[in-house]
Design a protein around this nucleic acid. Sequence first.
DNA 1: CGATTTTGACCCGCGC
DNA 2: GCGCGGGTCAAAATCG
Length: 325
Amino acid sequence: MENKPELKTENSMANSTFSDLIPAKSFALPNIFEMTCDGEKGSFGFMDMLGIQDYSTSSSLFDLIETPLMPTQSQPLLSPGSTVPESSEVVNTPATPNSSSISSSSTEAANDDQQAKTVEEEEQDQEKTKKELKPKKKNQKRQREPRFAFMTKSEVDHLDDGYRWRKYGQKAVKHSPFPRSYYRCTTVGCGVKKRVERSYADPSIVVTTYEGTHTHPCPVTPRGSLGILPETAGFGGGGGGGVGNSSFVIPQSHYQHHVQQQQQRRQQSYLHNSTPSLTFGTTNFSSPSLLQERRISHYTSSLLRDHGLLQDMVQSQMQMEPKQE
DNA sequence: CGATTTTGACCCGCGC
DNA sequence: GCGCGGGTCAAAATCG
């Protein structure tokens, strides 16, 4: 698999709802320029505030990123102090607030139900579904796990987040030349899924959507956790206060190289230069966007400075972008 | 040889 | 009811 980061951030203090979705993991993100947490509509109004469209109602994530993102700006998408409910759908969306339609979706409704569900029940459901291939989801609507999506500027489609994923499907996305890939966490009992698709508006942007909650620790050895990056990368560090101590991980070069080769071999459709990674350590999204944004900015700045193999991660395009502070 | 990816078929929800 | 599109399955292919 592609996700075998040598480094990662393991933060057991994860106490946020966001971390529930993506508990202490590393993401391979060469350049995240947008990260949004969308609280449950109505509860927080993030989306309203940001003009974000709830993509859960969209047939495609592209609906969300229709508005070209400005790579140069990573604006805070959440108001400080806001918290993301567990069952919320966290959406990373365009900073440009032009899409105004915000709709409550069945997905969200499902999420509500989901909330009351235990992980066990969740797993049971999934197993059932597998066994009874036919009668699957007959009487009940498909349950949606809370989802979290974010966009990254990367040439690598499948970002390294520290978990092991198995691709189980790929579909062409309407109106887009880029396919959408479906991944499932390979850990038994963990039904977390993730979708990865590239924005047709800006092919350099990869939209990753996580669905569900990992029921296990990150398979990656905790070695190197915080040490290597966060603070230095400027993305984690924090920790303290439990407020958004997400961390980016700068993968070790050999691994990166390894992944790079794999991807180049496997995915010929697109360009793949590397598999940088980023870590969401304990991601308390109490006031995510702002922090994230800062860290991301800092992170990208660090990348620019680091060079080495990291250079692969930093696209020329990105380098040209006026660096945030 | 086991794990993972590929890919066509199938299922399901939704809009018309 | 039908067609479309998203999501998933699973057999075959591929890789390490």
